[in-house]
Design a protein around this nucleic acid. Sequence first.
RNA 1: CGGGGCGUAGCUUAGCCUGGUAGAGCGUCUGGUUUGGGACCAGAAGGUCGCAGGUUCAAAUCCUGUCGCCCCGACCA
Length: 651
Amino acid sequence: MESQKRVDPDEKHNRHHDPAQRQGFGRRTTGGHHADSIRRSAKCRKSICVPLWRLFSYRRFMKLWSRFFIPTLKESPADAEITSHKLLLRAGLVRKLSGGLYTYLPLGLRALQKITQLCREEMDAAGAIELWMPHLHPAEFWQAGPRWAAAREIMYRADHAGDGRRGPRDPEFVLGPTHEEIITPLVKSELTSYRDLPKNFYQIATKFRNEIRPRYGLMRAREFVMKDAYSFDVDDEAAIRSYLAMKAAYAKFFARCGLKTISVEADTGVMGGSFSHEFMVPAEVGDDDVVCCEECGYAANREKATSGLVPADLVDAAPEGAFEEFPTPGVATIAALEAAPYGVPADRQFKTLIFMGDGRLFAVVLRGGDELEEAKLGALGFSLWRPATVEEIEPVMGAKPGSLGAVRGTIKNPDALAGVFADHAVRLIGNGVTGANKDGYHLRQVNVTRDLAITKYGDFRRVRVGEPCPKSGQPLQIRRAIEVGHVFKLGTKYSEKYGAAYTDDQKQSKLMVMGCYGIGISRTLQAVVEQCHDADGIIWPWNVAPYQVLVVLLDPQLPEAGELARKLAAAAEAAGADVLVDDRAERPGVKFKDADLIGVPLRITIGGRGLKEGVVEMKLRTEKAVEKVPLTEAEARVQAAVAAAQAAAKA
RNA sequence: CGGGGCGUAGCUUAGCCUGGUAGAGCGUCUGGUUUGGGACCAGAAGGUCGCAGGUUCAAAUCCUGUCGCCCCGACCA
């Protein structure tokens, strides 16, 4: 084989251990020149610096940039839009394979592993137990669960091998978007007694979701790393304890990642369940809106947020006389009815929307100026719903959208409606205008209480900026945010479906009460970058930095510089830091730019100039100032700086 | 899925409207000069112009289809 002829790399290095050999490099590669005068030439840099790492056997304990792989970019690829995505690419952390699919390069992987480890520590500390589940799921597990229909479209299918040979009895597979459907059957068969509970199982693994629109790099990917945990408790009260323990662990975890998060009340969405909180990172580029009150700390996802717009003591408006029809040819929008000659303000109009839910139509009534918050329809109990089509609406209502109303007696076939659900805010209208269920006509003097066929009031509208906080009454604000974690109290939705029950001390069989808890690990990575950067690059928080100390050798060809780098790197490592040494034959400017870009928290610069003065330089990525440290103190000072950073990161 | 935009060298892009030799910067390679915040000079390599049809004497350019990517909306960690 070829390898027999090849010289073993280590043996090759050993040849250069002799200092005399070291001296020889300059001469050998530069002909008759005096070694000193040409030692900084480009050629010399290359020929000398590469053997240098061999000379001192750095490799045993030093990670050398020249031997590593950090492909930094001066310019960001065109398909990156937001800062963190650009920086992930520019700092050589990730590369795109395809939309929503990314390769973690060595540096990115290290950061990801740091986050993973922090998460693991907090989960373990909170009493959760790590395991690992398959990510290829036989579809039958999902079919047996409560949300097969709803979750289907986000799941990747891996039905057959594609050779057409598999028979119809072979299972259909899906790639796991989450694991309730897998963990619950496991728990059902393994945990049977109240003595086994509580339990909380978690894993940190890849999830697959057929996102309708992957974007922003790792922020919304088709394949991503998630920590998912599932708690099982004997009753509601215990489940709440588990929930609160997870919520507390999450707060700790995000704090340790150096992330500022806010926890907000959230909608439970397709997960179902009784209540939930999301952990949000405020960011301009977030794809969630958080409604919050500076005054009292109320914070909720916009999907869930309410306001104090409708006073609790609001008195029903008295009718102004019988409602009457009036012609409105061609008027099909709120705006058109607002315009002349009608001049009906949007918030005096009843807006009627028709939806199809589980095979039946239902109506939602809002103020004309309000927007429906569709997620809030989840409270109505339909498992699936969508806006109804014109063809579905007309036979039931008697008119096309634009002329619809929920006025009793005007609906063509009221029995076909599963209900008329009105937002509380319509009560503010009192007497208003709405469609006559007759194309080209509207009704006025419609009284909410007397005329509308309301089945039930609820909160369906979207909160607007400046409305009073439901708690303090102060104006609400809305901020963009990135969701990085989500805790749900699930209740018995899954345990019931899969029969996850236990026997209590009265020999009674009872359903376990569940909770589930997710952290977007890869999303957290990007959120950190999004929150911690400046114009020059990433500013890693200490705990998630892929490397915490960077020793920059400006003159790597100087033996004394190499020797010093070795000492300082060893000192920093002994203090508990991860150290990278930039030994590349690059100009100082390039090295400094790269150092800032990859965002290592503590930079130690060793250059020929400083060595003559007898100093090395220390600089924190967060600070502008560079500190000159005498060589005699260098090791101790580096260790002290590492210790200080560690202490600060712990606090 | 609806709406908008873009596919030209590893990266950023010019050229396309008005068809006729594919151009630059960064990066890479060679030689030299430089050396503390992304150096300079000289030279070189690197392109099926996303793909497939069509129009034409001639297509990166015009037409049709298709694939991919990005942005806005609904969904989510």
